[in-house]
């Protein structure tokens, strides 16, 4: 209950920001961080809680993004309805990819590679089929009206994004106190032991992928409506996949607040780097990479582990190593 109160307080505070922040520049910067938090948390459901490290979450993002774009442009379907379809297709794609990989028992790096490959396949498909606009991409007609899921003021998009992000975080909060969540952690930590006490690991992983895909798809829908333009690289390229897992890992995988921490930390760092270095192309990527290496080495359980026990017992390098050694000894 306390965690829920903190969650609600944070999102209520974020909800008031457009009224306090006068400049669109800052509001936009916060939105970018919030967007990262959304896809980071979506990835976290499958990667952090169920232990299925995907490198290709852009697949679900792109499917949601294209769904709302194609339905609108080619079939004239209202984007609010498109949002539902995009979310559902994202969830369906998550379950389908899970079904394809888990029934062959793919785990760890093999699973990661297959997800990466699927996202690439869809990028190439989107590049060559006419109904996705192929390489030219899709342009959505500007029609700034809430009924068309377009807004005149930036704050409209902000609140839409905030609502989606809140829904995602609320789902994870619920997950942490549900049977499904407990079973996901069990499957993540030891699939055989979970099966021995009656956990259907296959079904649990499918559900995790579907829930993860749902929010990734919704993020895609938001992206399309926000920028009104989509091409295969934006939709299925590795950018969103990497961003999602980076944010979750830096913040703390398998934690409720981790992706939020990670998203704001990374974007703050990115902004600071840009101010310091100017427009050096690729500088932010170098910094992201460095941060990831440093995090994995010294704070493998992410920023969220700092808050839990203070620096001394943060589950940092020492404890991580000790645990790994102990596991090796047991095996």
């Amino acid at each position: 209950m306390k965690r829920l109160a903190v969650l609600v307080a944070i999102f209520a505070g974020l909800g008031l920001l457009p009224l306090l922040v006068g400049s669109d520049f800052w509001l936009n910067a916060i939105m970018l961080a919030l967007f990262s938090a959304l896809i980071g948390q979506a990835w976290n459901i499958a990667g952090g809680y169920a232990g299925q490290f995907s490198f290709g979450h852009a697949l679900f993002f792109g499917i949601g993004a294209y769904a709302v774009a194609v339905l609108q442009v080619d079939l004239g379907i209202n984007p609010w309805l498109g949002m539902l379809v995009g979310g559902a297709l994202g969830a369906g794609a998550g379950a389908a990819l899970g079904w394809l990989t888990f029934r062959y028992g793919l785990r760890g790096s093999y699973f990661a590679l297959v997800t990466l490959a699927f996202a690439e396949v869809f990028r190439i498909l989107a590049n060559s089929t006419p109904f996705t606009g192929a390489g030219e991409g899709i342009l959505i007609k500007l029609n700034p009206h809430p009924a068309m899921l377009q807004f005149k003021a930036l704050s409209g998009y902000y609140w839409l994004l905030l609502a989606l992000t809140f829904a995602c975080f609320l789902s994870v909060w619920w997950l942490e106190r549900s049977r499904l969540g407990a079973q996901m952690l069990a499957v993540r930590d030891n699939e055989d032991a979970a099966a021995a006490v009656g956990v259907d690991a296959f079904a649990v992983k499918l559900k995790a992928m579907a829930l993860s895909g749902l929010f990734m798809g919704l993020a895609g829908v938001f992206y399309t409506q926000r920028y009104l333009y989509l091409d295969p690289g934006l939709a299925f390229g590795p950018t969103q996949s990497v961003e999602a897992l980076l944010v979750a890992i830096v913040g703390g995988i398998g934690t409720l607040f981790g992706p939020l921490l990670g998203a704001f930390a990374l974007h703050l760092l990115g902004e600071a780097a840009q101010t310091a270095l100017g427009d050096v192309p690729g500088a932010n990527m170098v910094i992201y990479g460095t941060v990831l290496v440093v995090m994995v080495l010294f704070l493998p359980r992410g920023l969220a582990s700092l808050g839990k026990a203070g620096l001394g017992k943060a589950g940092g390098r020492r404890q991580g190593l000790r645990r790994r050694k102990r596991r090796a000894k047991d095996a």
Partner: peptide, 20 residues
């Protein structure tokens, strides 16, 4: 060869069984 859900508490470990 014991297979605890490492990183979870004893209570959480046993609860996975109870969730059946």
């Amino acid at each position: 060869i014991v297979q605890p859900f490492a990183g979870q508490t004893v209570r959480e470990n046993i609860a996975v069984g109870a969730h059946m």
